[in-house]
Amino acid sequence: MRRYATTRLVQLVAIVFLISVLAFLLVHLLPGDPTVAILGPNDTPTARHELLAQLGLNHSLPLQYWTWLKNIVRGNLGASFLTKQTVTNAISVAAPIDLELIVVSQLMAFAVAIPLALVAARRPNKIFDRLATTSTFGLLSFPTFVVAVLLVLVFAVEFHLFPATGFVRLSQGLVGNLKSVLLPSIALAVGSVAVYFRLLRADLISTLQEDYVTMAKAKGLSTPYILVRHALRPSSFSLLAGAGISIGSLFTGAFVVEVLFQLPGIGYQLVTAINSRDYLMVQGMALVAAIAYVVINFVVDFLLTVLDPRVRHA
């Protein structure tokens, strides 16, 4: 176990290093000159020269990267060219939004998908299974932005139960906070429910055909007990792997929901920064999002080894 963990940690560090290089180079691959965006009508040769020197853009790429890396280690990710907001501050504003959206939406998704899959897998191709499969397939075909707009129209505009936009921080009150994340979380959860249900249902059906399940039935154990205690754990590998990818991608993939609900999360800030060629903001946000993705998947891999010891020996 220790060896497995060490190996994965070394891999993690290597991947994070590669991510840092890519995040650094990413901005240099963007079309156009960032100094033009920054200077706008002030773009005179003198002003441009001063800006290049100030930002270090006139140095070699390796030197720029080394300076950037040193600053990151010191917790200095720079500041936005446009708003002068520090990247660290922007991340501290954005990250809690994403974290809460992810936690709430994924809890919702699991809370719906797991019971649904357990019941559906119990009698495959019967009425409940078909209904659940068809319904989740239908959910998959609903784009997130459509779900988001419908939720706002019904629960915010019509019934005034939730705010239509904005994020209330936990420090400003639990109720307000939950109300502000509920609708966007539901919008994000809808797609996940469908995916998780289908992954878990398929694995459960397969598991329920195993000999040890037949044995359990022969011993007279109740079906719910067998499903939860004997079938669920060995059937959740695909679910967990899928959740790892899904959760990681939500760090930036929630962009549409963040824009519609005006939640300045990582995805929102990243796309805004890309559109305005906000050099350091793009680097910082991309770096954080990519590292979050890798770390989440590392944790998921680790959980998989806990669930199934065979994985660590594979």
């Binding site: 707009v149 915010a156 005006q262």
Partner: peptide, 13 residues
Amino acid sequence: IDTSREASLRSGT
């Protein structure tokens, strides 16, 4: 987003 701003007004946000 215009529709989000309008929904915010209509919902009292």
